[in-house]
Simulated assay, not measured.
Amino acid sequence: MAYEDFVSRLNPESMIVRPGSKIKIKDFDPGYKGDFQKGEALEILQLGIKELAKYQDMLYAQDTYALLIILQALDAAGKDSTIKHVMSGINPQGCQVFSFKAPSAEELDHDYLWRSYKALPERGRIGIFNRSYYEEVLVVRVHPELLAKQQLPADKKNKYIWKQRFEEINNFEKYLVNNGIVVLKFFLNVSKEEQKRRFLKRIELPEKNWKFSTSDARERQFWDDYMEAYEDVFNYTSTELAPWHIIPADHKWFTRTAVAYFIYEKMKSLNLAYPKVSEEHYAELLKAKEMLETED
């Protein structure tokens, strides 16, 4: 099967938040898997991984663009495993992953984009943000006490701060894209029922205990608040330059296949190619070849 044959059955348009639209997360089915069976999707994923490896090699050699992949989700949606599987064929020299936890004292002494700016990928590389600056309009919004701890002037902590931050984020991403850092944003959309099942599995299996804490369960109390915050994020920050992709996440095998497809499509659109050497450089290569072939 050619990788492109998969596209018509994926229905990728259904997973993109169109700029200017007003969406509701309930209209995106977290259990969607198209007409694919797990085995077939895994086969397609392997094809996609090979394609990504090819494009990443050209991205690295060309050294013009960088690709920033943003993964947002609630706990247990599969961010870590998506990174592990989708990027399994990538040369580690050309990829970097940053996981953003609660900001440190030093980070709180700077603006909220500072730590993200420091982690941006260099040209020729793929950077992955496991959570990102979007936490500043998600978890900080759901938990106002976190905003209270941020060392902002008192008059900046008002009801307009979220729309102000949406505008700042849009401007930031426009700046990145204008400078050759392509932004690709994914929300892994897991259902509340599937999250509960995965939490219970983490408790029941000793090798998964480390991945769970009681705070994960407590956050479920704020599910509706998170959904409302995410909807605002999608409605205000899905732009032509950096649209949001809402990926069904109840079936991890489909999630990984869909994410790989969108990364592939984005890299393909960049018209990547290996650099062409000058005539002078090529002449030098021929001389080097002659020297090597005439060695004793």
Results as ranks from 00 to 15, higher is better:
residue 165 R to Y: 11
residue 112 Y to H: 00
residue 170 N to K: 03
residue 173 E to G: 04
residue 51 E to V: 09
residue 227 M to N: 09
residue 40 E to Q: 14
residue 9 R to N: 10
residue 278 S to L: 09
residue 6 F to G: 01
residue 214 T to Q: 13
residue 176 L to E: 10
residue 148 A to R: 03
residue 271 N to A: 08
residue 66 A to H: 03
residue 142 V to P: 01
residue 134 Y to W: 05
residue 74 L to H: 03
residue 45 L to W: 04
residue 246 I to H: 02
residue 123 R to N: 07
residue 199 F to K: 02
residue 186 F to T: 02
residue 255 T to L: 07
residue 171 N to E: 15
residue 32 Y to D: 00
residue 50 K to D: 11
residue 230 Y to I: 06
residue 63 D to W: 07
residue 209 N to M: 11
residue 224 D to F: 10
residue 283 A to S: 12
residue 209 N to Y: 13
residue 28 F to I: 07
residue 36 F to D: 06
residue 204 E to Y: 05
residue 277 V to W: 00
residue 282 Y to F: 15
residue 86 V to C: 07
residue 52 L to D: 03
residue 130 N to Y: 06
residue 161 I to S: 01
residue 53 A to E: 11
residue 93 Q to R: 15
residue 7 V to I: 14
residue 158 N to L: 13
residue 190 V to K: 04
residue 239 T to V: 13
residue 133 Y to W: 15
residue 14 S to D: 11
residue 139 V to T: 08
residue 88 S to D: 15
residue 9 R to S: 12
residue 52 L to P: 02
residue 123 R to H: 13
residue 35 D to Y: 06
residue 198 R to K: 07
residue 296 D to L: 11
residue 122 E to M: 02
residue 217 A to H: 06
residue 56 Q to A: 01
residue 118 K to V: 05
residue 219 E to H: 08
residue 13 E to R: 10
residue 6 F to N: 00
residue 194 E to H: 05
residue 254 F to G: 02
residue 163 K to W: 12
residue 71 L to F: 15
residue 128 I to R: 01
residue 195 Q to F: 07
residue 205 L to T: 11
residue 109 D to E: 15
residue 49 I to G: 02
residue 196 K to Q: 14
residue 222 F to Q: 12
residue 213 S to G: 09
residue 254 F to D: 05
residue 131 R to N: 06
residue 92 P to I: 02
residue 193 E to A: 14
residue 72 Q to K: 09
residue 208 K to R: 14
residue 116 S to N: 14
residue 148 A to L: 04
residue 182 V to D: 09
residue 49 I to V: 15
residue 149 K to S: 12
residue 55 Y to V: 04
residue 85 H to F: 05
residue 40 E to L: 11
residue 2 A to F: 11
residue 107 E to R: 07
residue 111 D to L: 05
residue 67 L to H: 01
residue 244 W to A: 05
residue 287 K to R: 14
residue 248 P to T: 05
residue 142 V to A: 11
residue 143 H to P: 02
residue 129 F to P: 02
residue 3 Y to C: 00
residue 292 L to V: 13
residue 235 N to W: 04
residue 219 E to S: 12
residue 134 Y to V: 03
residue 227 M to P: 00
residue 222 F to E: 09
residue 169 I to K: 01
residue 83 I to L: 06
residue 34 G to Q: 15
residue 60 Y to G: 03
residue 11 N to F: 09
residue 60 Y to T: 03
residue 178 N to F: 06
residue 206 P to S: 13
residue 69 I to F: 02
residue 130 N to V: 08
residue 224 D to V: 08
residue 252 K to A: 07
residue 18 R to A: 10
residue 212 F to A: 13
residue 229 A to F: 03
residue 87 M to L: 14
residue 277 V to T: 13
residue 92 P to K: 00
residue 14 S to R: 15
